[in-house]
Design a protein around this nucleic acid. Structure first.
Length: 97
DNA sequence: CATATGACACTAT
DNA sequence: AATAGTGCCATAT
């Protein structure tokens, strides 16, 4: 099981309407400082619709990027009930602990 | 095997 | 408060 597959597995557990940060995801995957690598894994995302890669946001809840565009990402999150204001998510309410 | 790349995070201006 | 620069990790080429 390589690093990214671990990321996908973990990310897949994230419930709808919640979000996680790259850093925490990386930490959960076993490499606390591999936030960047996580983003890379999401970018290639071999498990396209299976993994909720759109539920991954920056450490501050700020939208960082998305393969199809941040706009799309925000749209999807809103569809799940996550409030996104000016590209930012309310961490205290939607962060997956 | 070595170099380059990127959807991050943090510190210093 | 906003912007720029630096460090880190795993993958792809």
């Amino acid at each position: 099981m390589n690093f990214n597959e671990r990321c996908y597995s973990i990310l897949r557990k994230v419930p709808r309407g919640k979000v996680v940060t790259y850093g925490d995801l990386a930490k959960a995957a076993g490499s606390p400082n591999a936030a960047r690598a996580v983003g890379n894994a999401m970018n290639r995302n071999p498990y396209a619709p299976q993994v909720p890669c759109h539920r991954v946001v920056g450490s501050t809840g700020k939208m960082v990027g998305f393969a199809e565009g941040v706009s799309k990402k925000i749209k999807m999150l809103k569809e799940e009930g996550v409030e996104v204001m000016d590209g930012n998510v309310d961490m205290d309410k939607y962060f997956y602990t």
